[in-house]
Design a protein around this nucleic acid. Structure first.
Length: 541
DNA sequence: GTAGGGTTAG
């Protein structure tokens, strides 16, 4: 136990004790090493953090192993300010440079990772810049953090180059992370070639990341080639290829691979099935989802899988399946209930959604903030303004849930759809949050629905203030194809005073039209096209 | 003791 802490030199210890006496009239009991070590390893975190000043006052210095454990505890149970507290403590009372090279490096690495996990990448980079030495873990931590952020992926690649220039060789961890930053086929080809060169392309983590990277770029053949080179096999590599196919819209291919995987002797686990189901949900592939359901049957008591199935059937609009499954489920948690509430509301069954909410409460299940989004959403669809207000106002009192941005947005949607546009504006002005573009867009949608051009112009100006660079992507290419299919725009829903051609132009970007056009272009003859959307604000539908 | 792949609700 004593090996966990090192005593400081005697003069420093004496000075610390003197200052400690000045502060406290009664000498404080000496904190025991056993308490320190146990709390640093097991927590609870607040108690461990509270001991840091005592530790310093007693002239004791935690060793690197205890400190890295404390940082880990902080990532799991604490906040960024807890992490900063540890960092400050270490720098003040046991500077990282005082540890032997390995020990200090471990502590620094864990702190860099801690900042990255709290989303404080710039603080992580500041610490990184100040480090006297860095190893492959230090570099990989930063590369991975950058690769996971849209907008900083190029930096991740620059760090990979800098790392090699610094004489640190990337390993499988590094490649697996940096592959998430390959946004063009050329970069991916170069990184792939590097993995082959250093013999890491057969590592299961690298292989799975390679497949993901090819699939994300839409290169199904590239992904398939990497997959086919696999000799030993790995469940997650199978998972990568299956999800890649499903997300590329090749649901049939995904299921074929899924079957091949089982033939190859792999047993789909919960992770495989949930990710395949997620892909089915995202692509609205009801038939494929039903086939996956058959495989879920052997996990007949798995709540996560049942919830994923429930969501899939909701998003695919198959309410008979939703009903049958929900009643058969052996247990239900707050996610099951929330899925039902939102799913029914999305399918235009608001009254049922609110009945399910009552049923949920009668079963003694406490709603959470996501449940309340569903409830407010249901009110919004059914035009139940009074009920919506009641639920919004009672969230805190009845369920202890503080209304957040998304709940405020639901209220603007509710008031706006009900035609109470002035009340919606008043609500936006009175709320304690700074309105964001989502709120203004909600109001704009309501203005269109109720043909209020003045207020629409106001909302649009607010949106442009917040998002001056709002851009339209490859849309025009797609529009050309829609027109070829006989699309005739209905200009009465454009409120601005514009020439008819300009109005038509604006309506091209209407989301349902686009979805139907996309479906028409890709659907097999005779098969239904299922359009999934989260809001029903258009007057035409 | 530090960095990695898939994993249910808006």
């Amino acid at each position: 136990m004593t090996s966990l802490f090192k005593r400081l030199p005697r003069n420093r210890l004496a000075a610390t004790r003197r200052s400690s006496r000045r502060v406290h009239t009664q000498p404080r009991p000496h904190p025991s090493l056993a308490i320190f070590s146990r709390l640093f390893i097991e927590g609870p975190l607040p108690a461990a953090l509270a001991l840091l000043p005592d530790l310093a006052a007693a002239g004791l210095r935690a060793d690197p192993v205890s400190l890295t454990r404390l940082v880990k505890l902080c990532v799991r149970h604490g906040t960024a300010s807890d992490g900063r507290l540890i960092h400050r403590h270490v720098e003040t009372h046991g500077p990282l440079s005082h540890y032997s090279a390995g020990g200090g490096l471990f502590v620094s690495n864990s702190l860099v990772s801690m900042y990255a996990k709290f989303g404080l990448l710039d603080e992580a980079l500041r610490l990184f810049d100040g480090m006297p030495e860095r190893n492959v873990v230090t570099w990989t931590t930063v590369v991975a953090a950058l690769a996971n952020l849209n907008g900083r992926k190029e930096e991740a690649l620059r760090f990979l180059v800098a790392m090699r220039r610094d004489g640190v060789a990337p390993n499988a961890y590094t490649f697996s992370s940096v592959l998430g930053a390959c946004a063009t086929p050329w970069v991916l080809a170069a990184v792939h070639a590097s993995t082959v060169k250093v013999g890491l392309d057969s590592d299961v983590f690298v292989r799975s990341s390679l497949i993901d990277a090819y699939m994300k770029l839409g290169d199904l053949d590239g992904g398939r080639r990497v997959f086919d080179e696999m000799v030993t096999g790995d469940l997650v590599v199978w998972n990568s290829i299956i999800v890649g196919f499903a997300q590329s819209g090749d649901g049939v291919g995904a299921i074929e691979l899924f079957t091949r995987m089982k033939d190859a002797g792999f047993s789909a686990n919960q992770g495989t099935l949930t990710s395949v189901l997620r892909a089915c949900t995202g692509m609205v592939m009801l038939e494929v989802g039903r086939q996956v359901h058959a495989h879920v049957l052997k996990y007949d008591r798995n709540l996560i899988l049942h919830n994923a199935l429930l969501d899939m059937y909701c998003k695919c609009g198959s309410l008979e399946d939703v009903d049958a499954l929900f009643h058969r489920m052996p247990q239900r948690d707050v996610i099951s209930w929330s899925t039902m509430i939102s799913g029914l509301a999305q399918n235009g069954k608001s009254a049922e959604a609110l009945r399910v909410f009552d049923f949920m409460k009668s079963e003694g299940v406490a709603p959470n903030r996501i449940t309340m989004v569903g409830v407010l959403f249901a009110c919004s669809h059914a035009g139940l303004v009074e009920d919506g207000w009641h639920y919004f106002r009672s969230m805190k009192k009845l369920f202890g849930i503080q209304p957040e941005r998304e709940h405020h947005n639901c209220m603007v949607n509710l008031l706006g759809r009900a035609g109470k546009l002035d009340e919606a504006v008043e609500f936006i002005r009175d709320m304690n949050l700074e309105p964001d573009s989502v709120i203004w867009r909600t109001l704009l949608g309501a203005c269109r629905m109720h043909k209020n051009a003045n207020l629409a112009a106001y909302a649009a100006r607010e949106i442009l203030k917040l998002e001056p660079d709002d851009q339209v992507q490859e849309l025009n290419r797609l529009i050309g194809r829609i027109s070829a299919l006989g699309y005739v725009p209905q200009t009465e829903f454009v409120l601005q005073d514009l020439a008819i051609e300009q109005k038509e132009d604006l309506l091209k970007y209407h989301s349902e039209k686009m979805a139907i056009a996309f479906g028409t272009m890709h659907a097999v003859d005779g098969k239904p096209i299922r359009i999934m959307k989260n809001l029903r604000i258009c007057g035409l539908w």
